[in-house]
Write a protein that binds this DNA or RNA. Structure first.
Lengths: 188, 188
DNA sequence: CGTTTGCTTGAATTCTGTCAAAGCAGGTGG
DNA sequence: CCACCTGCTTTGACAGAATTCAAGCAAACG
């Protein structure tokens, strides 16, 4: 469980109280961590691998919302926290190992462990800021610029994630992403 | 300060400790609550009026990010919490009255008042979920559908906010919003 | 009033999606 | 190890969506 530690946010003692609440779990490639329409009972800290969250729209098309790799948290907040049914599915893109924490243990930690509560507060704040930036990108950048941005900020994903998922992440069709890539190699 | 109370989240005693940290402030129509590039020293709870946040892109175009009305919190999280310079500007669309809380008072409340910390945690979580939904909308809905959605979820805004701002909020040009409105009145 | 500001319109243009076909993998079973 | 699937990527022609630009109108404001 080095990764949680490597944030070096917690002291040794705090970790001793926090870590026992987590269980290690493995998922095969293409396996679902959580399926849309079910209740999320746990959230995951990714230790090794890659996970995508996606939704299926009313036309049956998939849209990738987020990619999590080593050090990311993944989970359906809405379902996990409010107890509603998940609107998104979560799927391993590679063989993936995670540390899972169940709702009851989560709630207990949030109540009893001030350091954890603080940690989660920071997590949410950062997520909020990241998402805000994403919204701004969608407004201000063209598809090509969004792809360039992704190239810079998450270069690792380009090799790990199929094009079609990257395309849907930046909000375009796989075919059009192909065009963009073609144009870019020609120009350069 | 009925509004903060009306959330009926806090007990009387908690409110007695919390409310003194807020100051009432007024802004005229078009006045800026906070300007991009400056440091955010306080955040606002809107008691009466309407505020929009927006950014100016590299082509000089404005994009409205969020509209806050009665009962909304407005502020530049990134700047307020991390001490960086604000990326967005915040402008009163109507004469607006807010309750402002300064960074030092905020920090103090977050440290000393567990109920406030919890309240803010919920605030951020909800904001996170709302934003996630917004991203999904941008992916899955056409411009026309996004406008219809806005019509339903924030009908009040249609009368209070100029078209051009609504247009930029749903990510289109004012001209195209005009087309949509025209088409819709013809069809129906 | 005159001036500004915002809304509408239409035509030309750019961007992105759709569709269909073909090429290129990677994985599987024999 | 090969041959065959199956699913992913590429391509090009075309259609549709959205923007740009320019002009005119209406409403708001000092």
């Amino acid at each position: 469980m080095k990764h949680l530690l490597s944030y070096d946010f917690f002291t040794e003692k705090e970790l001793e109280r926090i870590l026992p609440s987590f269980n290690q779990k493995s998922f095969k490639k293409k396996e679902l961590l959580l399926q849309e329409g079910t209740l999320s009972q746990e959230v995951y800290f990714i230790h090794r691998g890659c996970v995508r969250s996606f939704l299926v729209d009313y036309e049956g098309k998939e849209h990738s919302i987020l990619f999590g790799t080593e050090g990311y948290w993944m989970g359906d907040l809405q379902s996990f926290i409010n107890g509603s049914l998940a609107s998104y599915s979560y799927q391993a893109i590679e063989p993936t190992e995670v540390f899972a924490i169940k709702k009851t243990d989560w709630d207990q930690l949030m109540d009893e462990e001030a350091s954890f509560q603080k940690y989660v507060g920071i997590l949410f704040r950062n997520a909020l800021i990241t998402q805000q930036e994403r919204i701004v990108e969608l407004f201000t950048l063209s598809a090509e610029e969004r792809y360039e941005k992704l190239e810079k900020s998450r270069r690792d994903l380009l090799k790990r994630v199929p094009q079609k998922h990257l395309a849907s992440y930046i909000g375009i069709t796989p075919e059009f992403l192909s065009q963009i890539r073609k144009k870019r190699t020609e120009t350069e």
